[in-house]
Design a protein around this nucleic acid. Sequence first.
DNA 1: GTGGTCTAGACCACA
DNA 2: GTGGTCTAGACCACA
Lengths: 123, 123, 123, 123
Amino acid sequence: MISIDYQSKLPLYEQIAQRFQTLILRGVLPADSQMPSVRSLAMELSINPNTIQKAYSLLEQQGYIYPVKGRGNFVADSTALAREKKTSLLKEVRHLLAYGRELGIQKDEYINVIEQLYAKEGL
Amino acid sequence: MISIDYQSKLPLYEQIAQRFQTLILRGVLPADSQMPSVRSLAMELSINPNTIQKAYSLLEQQGYIYPVKGRGNFVADSTALAREKKTSLLKEVRHLLAYGRELGIQKDEYINVIEQLYAKEGL
Amino acid sequence: MISIDYQSKLPLYEQIAQRFQTLILRGVLPADSQMPSVRSLAMELSINPNTIQKAYSLLEQQGYIYPVKGRGNFVADSTALAREKKTSLLKEVRHLLAYGRELGIQKDEYINVIEQLYAKEGL
Amino acid sequence: MISIDYQSKLPLYEQIAQRFQTLILRGVLPADSQMPSVRSLAMELSINPNTIQKAYSLLEQQGYIYPVKGRGNFVADSTALAREKKTSLLKEVRHLLAYGRELGIQKDEYINVIEQLYAKEGL
DNA sequence: GTGGTCTAGACCACA
DNA sequence: GTGGTCTAGACCACA
């Protein structure tokens, strides 16, 4: 469920954290379900447990997971986080589009991208 | 003309290079005009000359500027680069929008962003 | 009667022990009354019996309870303990206040806290 | 300037972070002054650089210090933090005092502690 | 020189 | 079994 890109400039622990963020925000990992243990995930990905630990710390700090002493980490309720994430993503989109516009990209070109995107699965 | 964000995760030399890329692509710095000298820009920004040098090397490597021995660096013709940049930016947009879609952002929300953006200056 | 805070940094067994200490020191649990059995309390709190056992061991070691073979654990006489506890708590208060003073908290601010506290129930 | 208590239950990185918090809040380390480098402090305290790193990360996350790429960490402006810290400390005091009151500590005993504390240096 | 990331491996508290 | 802390040591990007 977690894949790693060793070419990426992003550090491993951020890649792992981001991947889990997506899975949690999309509801693939439901609230209160148990996260894989630090060690089992480390084994599975052939990565040092410390690195997984760091990813989990980040997720906890951001409110995606919560620890239960001696039992492991669990998925937090992410409804609030999802709202925030959506807002910040739209803001990012706005900036990127504005930058493109300054470089001469036309309105239609953006519209096309959107139409293609949402045409894909009949949504 | 060049501003620096010390909070940014981007290294200084990339910030500087990006800023010049934009200025060149938008035509603010026309082809064959002279770039500020490494030293003068370093002074102006209170930054290590090595950092400016690295930014210029990057720009040269990407084809945005060309060096003239003993005279400094000059802006290259960027018409070809502009096309490439536009393409890569649209690709980036596509990815970002697709990611947002997976998190539940609706088509309309994107359309709205675009409408607002292009309404701004009557374009 | 025993509540647990899973967000707390304190381990469960210490939380449980502390809670009982308070109940005993305040006289809610009188001397020689029987403590809930390890199993029943574990059931009630949905907690591992080992954890309750550890809390009880701590309480026994501190002199708050005593075990009777085959019959369970009982509340000890806590008059001596109460005196000690009061002393150690005042010491703790002294440290905390001193630290606050170093950070610039004024005498009056502390006095206010005390006045409010003891005004509450006319004591 | 930084001392470590190996008997303490607090992990080293928290001890170090707390110590710096105090020094910063008290103004001993003024805003924008440079923090000791991770490595030099590690050497000085005979502690692993990773542990210092972790302490600094915590301080950064809490807003006590800010990093400047390639140059090191610097003390942030702590006026806002000082206010928050004072508030949270007073809250802590309130809880501790209330707990003591429930165990039978009298108003006068608290007042005495305060008087002694502020008598010390004629404040 | 500065911090940031990562591995390998150990030890410990907790449930 | 679970996470948390720490050491030793390496490598890298950045300024």
